[in-house]
């Protein structure tokens, strides 16, 4: 199998740690912004009092924390998908038949 020269910047090195960082860190920042905006408008106590049964018995502190984690997870999924798409990109095959010299 041929490898994309663009892709294999660091042959033989494990990208794993980097990918974990690239997934968790931007989503953490996004979650900070998201929680700030969301909880400025919505009181987590309101979710408990008027929201679905799921939120019954939730105090504000738990609401904030779970909200933050929720945004973080969603953001992480988006980051992970981006990374996945980047890492699995293959160069298009432009020619059929023998390679041009």
């Amino acid at each position: 199998m041929s490898t994309n020269p663009q892709q294999s910047v660091e042959p033989g090195r494990r990208r794993w740690g980097v990918d974990v960082g690239l997934v968790l860190w931007p989503s953490f920042l996004a979650s900070c912004a998201g929680s700030l905006l969301f909880f400025a408008a919505v009181d987590p106590a309101l979710l408990r009092d008027a929201g679905p049964r799921l939120f019954a018995g939730l105090d504000r502190e738990a609401g904030y924390a779970l909200g933050f984690i929720f945004f973080w997870v969603i953001g992480a999924l988006a980051s992970a998908l981006s990374i996945y798409l980047i890492r699995t990109e293959r160069p298009a095959r432009r020619t059929v038949g023998p390679e041009p010299p």
Partner: peptide
Amino acid sequence: EPAPFYAA
């Protein structure tokens, strides 16, 4: 300098 890599 090798390409940026914090793991390494």
